[in-house]
Each structure stands twice: as structure tokens, then as C-alpha cells.
Amino acid sequence: MRSFLFHKSLLIFFFWIMLSPWIMGQQKGYVPGQGTFSNAIFDSSFEKALYKGSLDISKHHLSGLFYLKRISLNSIRILFSNELGMNFFDFELKGDEFIVHSCFPSLERASLLKLLEKDFRLLLIPDTTVTKMKRGRSKDPELVIFGVKSKRGSFHYTYDKDSGKIRRIQTSRSIMGRTDLRVYGDERLQPTKIHISNPTIRLHIRMTFLSN
């Protein structure tokens, strides 16, 4: 009987050791959006920001200014214009809606708009539809990685361990190819640099913070 109890305790102890990173993770709040690690790059206090930036698609290079503004709690406007002030596009993410207020004719293609919507949603709207999460291993001790499944798709979120800020979001599987979103900088309200890439269609969006 003692031997049985000893082995049972050992087994429980063994399982506890095996699962401890996950359990401890849950206890310490290692859950995007629910504790130390936020699921938002731009949180709800974000109001507006002006970025110098560029959009490269295939061989085409567009440069100018990205202007991001919160219109209401569930709506953010994204405007991209060239340096002379002419709009390339003016989009709005409003709840689940994606509104195209204006778009340069050569950019107005359904597949591209869908991809831009997905990328900007990833950047600007925190994912509140997470159904499954698993902490992964990071080679860098300064970073924490989570595999995340949500109604939006499957992703890898990479966090800065100390600050709990998102550093990278990668889509795991997608027909349109893999989106790789990286953010840099320690600004409180918004990242100082953003790079969104989708190698499949050679799309690169680069943004450098200018002002609020």
C-alpha cells in the first residue's frame, strides 16, 4: 500500500513537473490579454499616431505617411497618403466590418484589400476570440512564445519577457501566405517601428513613428 502511494505521488509529482511551465504560466498570467502579456499592440488608450512609411508590393514602391486614428471604442481609421498629400487609401476597421473610404485604383483589388484588412486588424485590434493557447519554446531567454488559435486563425505571438509587450505575430497557416508582423520600441502607447511582411505576394509595410 505504501509502495502504491509512493509511486502514485511520484507519478503526480512527475506530471506536475511536466506541466508546470503551462500551469505556472497560467498562474502568473502568461495568457495574452489576461495578465502580464497583453494581446494588444495598440491598447484601448491609443488615440492617434502619425507614421512615415512605405508600402512595397511586388516591384512597386509607395512611400508617404500613415495616419492612424481611433474614431470610437471599436473603430480605427487607417489613412495612407504620399508625401504630397494624395491619398493611396483610407480604410476603417469598425468591429468586424472593413470599410474602404477611398483607395487608389491600382490598389483596389479584392485579394489585396483582404490581406491589408487582415494585416491591419492584426496590428490594431486585439484578438478577443482566442480559443486555444500553448506556450512554446523560445531560443532567446528574453522572449516568450505562444501558439494561439482564435477565430482569426492560428498565430505565434512573441513577447518581450520583461515588459510583456508583443514583439512579433506570425500567422501559422493561411491560403494567402504567411504574415510576419514585427514591432519595435518601448513607447507606452505605440511602437516606434512596425514591419509587416507577406513574402508570398512580396508585400512589405514599414512604418516609423513621427508624432501623436
Partner: peptide
């Protein structure tokens, strides 16, 4: 640059 709907200037 005057953004008509956003009431902002860049």
C-alpha cells in the same frame, strides 16, 4: 493635408 472626416491636419 486636411482630412475632411477626421477634422485633422497633417
Amino acid at each position: 493635408k486636411n482630412l475632411s472626416i477626421l477634422s485633422e491636419k497633417i
